[in-house]
């Protein structure tokens, strides 16, 4: 028997590595993940619909409590940024469970046997997630517009407003990826994420201003990264100082990525399935 190509040739043409190859591989895996999201609209609708619903309900039930003299619109202008970031953070659970199912079904094993960049599986997951997050930000903001939320600070700032939470949440989703790699069942991912997400999003300058909290929590509220993101978005949309908060958000994003991507990649390489 003669092979159409010899082994050396095959290795040469197919071997992974190189910057362009890597980018291309990541792009392909990202595309696959986005396609799967697209085919499961129920998941996107569910993970976008719920924060939107929360936003509407909180506006309806707490506007008069938090801003007694103001209108529902005033509270909406205050609340929409936090609702957005909360919705995104919660949908990182989906990023985690989707990865978990891929790991379990053997899809990841298959990808790992292909001559593609080693980073493609995890990076593709994060980037695919980012694509979905962007869609969600736009949806939530549109609904926010309906209840009176407005960009009052120009086009460029509006654009940054949309991208900033996507960036931060993508960094945060490394923690979901880490849990998924470690988890023994899909519910574990959910059960491990939710208890963190609730205090992070509730104990932030989001639903109420900092002064609304008891003194002893105010310390946590002000260092909570979600407060930084919410304040940055608030500044970007409604005016007021924001540069400091944007920088804080970026620093948090870098830190989260550095820590959790290292942990995730290490755990991923240790897996034997």
């Amino acid at each position: 028997m003669t092979l159409p190509l010899n082994a050396a040739q095959l290795v040469k043409t197919r071997q992974e590595g190189g910057f362009l190859r890597t980018v291309y591989d990541i792009a392909l895996v990202t595309q696959r993940n986005l396609l799967l999201d697209l085919r499961n609209p129920a998941v996107i609708i569910g993970s976008t619909g719920f924060p939107i619903f929360l936003m509407l309900v909180f506006t309806a039930s707490f506007a008069k409590v938090v801003v007694p003299e103001g209108s529902y619109t005033d509270y909406a202008q205050f609340l929409v940024p936090l609702s957005t970031i909360q919705g995104l953070l919660f949908s990182t659970i989906n990023t985690g469970t989707a990865l978990y199912y891929d790991l379990r079904s053997g899809m990841v094993s298959r990808l790992r046997t292909l001559p593609i960049a080693r980073s493609a599986v995890l990076a593709g997951r994060i980037l695919g997630g980012a694509g979905r997050l962007l869609v969600q930000v736009i949806f939530i903001t549109l609904v926010g517009h309906l209840i009176g939320f407005r960009f009052q600070n120009g086009f460029i700032n509006g654009l940054i407003y949309l991208l900033l939470p996507v960036l931060f949440t993508s960094a945060f989703s490394w923690s979901a990826v880490f849990l998924a790699v470690k988890a023994k069942s899909a519910e574990t991912v959910q059960a491990a994420m939710a208890p963190w997400l609730l205090p992070l999003t509730f104990l932030s300058i989001g639903y109420v201003p900092k002064e609304g909290f008891p003194e002893w929590v105010q310390g946590f509220v002000s260092i909570n990264p979600v407060s930084a993101v919410a304040q940055a978005m608030r500044g970007l949309s409604s005016g007021g100082p924001y540069i400091g908060y944007v920088v804080q958000t970026l620093l948090w994003s870098v830190a989260l990525t550095a820590i959790f991507s290292t942990l995730a990649i290490r755990a991923y390489q240790k897996r034997n399935s």
Partner: peptide, 25 residues
């Protein structure tokens, strides 16, 4: 395991979060 968090942690986290966020207002 998920049930255990559901039973133990969830209600208390919710209670605490709402209480802290809205008690003053």
């Amino acid at each position: 395991p998920a049930v255990i968090t559901g039973v133990l942690v969830f209600p208390i986290v919710f209670l605490t979060a709402f209480l802290l966020a809205f008690e003053r207002s």
